[in-house]
């Protein structure tokens, strides 16, 4: 089997990709990707821009269909498993002037339970509970536009939690957030890590070391590395993310993964 697999993991499989390939037009964005994510695992996805990280997320959300190979989540197709996935997009994507409150946004996590008219009381309770988990219960009625970057990102995490997910997917949660704010976000994610399976796309090395069990390097193909990374790698990593990215990219393209410890 592919070195990417960790078959001895004691918990059930949450997501499984087997020989997965995908292309938008001609070149393959992802090629022969095989991995398993087990319940309770916390995986960080890294890789160069354009390496296929976002494509992998979209495939896992069922927004794209795999060209070849299979991808199952909780034993179902991604589109069928959607209701069990909590998705946290980048906060920067949103119209900051859109007139909604933090609670309004978190309630969107309960959209699948909404018929016509208003959200039920039970939905509101779940949403408030989710806001408490990210320590923003006091800000529930504040407009989205008045929240800081870190608070906005935490609101989006709360929205994903309101889905009561089995798997949490996060897309660069610390992008465009200043360092002082990031600490709170880190704390939130560290707490969540104990409770659910997490897949986190990030460039942020603090985040990787705080939240990740292992790392998936995505650059068309996927390679899995366990954490903590070896001292030499860590030194390289802390000397600058760009260099690491560049370094990993070069090594991956040359088929050399000696810098990272394989499972």
């Amino acid at each position: 089997m592919n070195p990417v697999e960790s078959s001895e993991y004691p918990t059930p499989v949450v997501a499984e990709a087997c020989g997965l390939s995908f292309r938008y037009q001609k070149p393959l964005v992802l090629e022969d990707v095989t991995f398993r994510i087990h319940e309770g695992e916390s995986l960080c996805v890294i890789g160069p821009n354009g390496g296929g990280k976002s494509t992998l997320l979209k495939l896992m959300l069922g927004l794209l269909e795999p060209g070849r190979g299979s991808l199952t989540i909780l034993g179902k197709s991604p589109a069928q498993a959607r209701c069990n996935i909590g998705y946290v997009p980048q906060a920067l994507r949103f119209d900051p002037l859109y007139p909604v409150s933090a609670l309004d946004i978190v309630l969107m996590g309960r959209l699948d339970r909404l018929g016509v008219g208003r959200y039920s009381k039970a939905c509101r309770e779940v949403a408030m509970n989710a806001l408490e988990q990210v320590a923003l219960a006091d800000s529930s009625s504040r407009p989205f536009s008045n929240l800081s970057g870190g608070q906005r990102q935490r609101v989006l995490i709360a929205r994903a939690l309101a889905c009561e997910p089995k798997l949490l997917l996060l897309d660069e949660p610390t992008a465009n957030i200043d360092l002082s704010v990031e600490a709170q976000l880190l704390e939130t994610l560290t707490r969540l890590r104990e409770k659910m399976t997490i897949l986190l796309v990030t460039h942020d090395l603090d985040l990787i070391s705080a939240v990740g069990d292992s790392v998936l390097c995505v650059n068309r193909r996927i390679h899995r590395h366990s954490l903590p990374l070896s001292g030499e790698v860590v030194k390289e990593i802390y000397s600058g993310i760009n260099r690491v990215e560049h370094d990993l990219r070069t090594r991956h393209s040359q088929g050399d993964h000696s810098a990272c410890q394989h499972d």
């Binding site: 959300l61 969107m108 699948d112």
Partner: peptide, 23 residues
């Protein structure tokens, strides 16, 4: 508008997420 207020707002704010929630 009264019947679908929350769904319209959700779609206006983030159509992708609304789609992921089955809307």
């Amino acid at each position: 508008i009264a019947l679908f207020y929350h769904k319209l707002v959700a779609v206006c704010f983030d159509e992708e997420f609304a789609r992921l929630r089955g809307i």
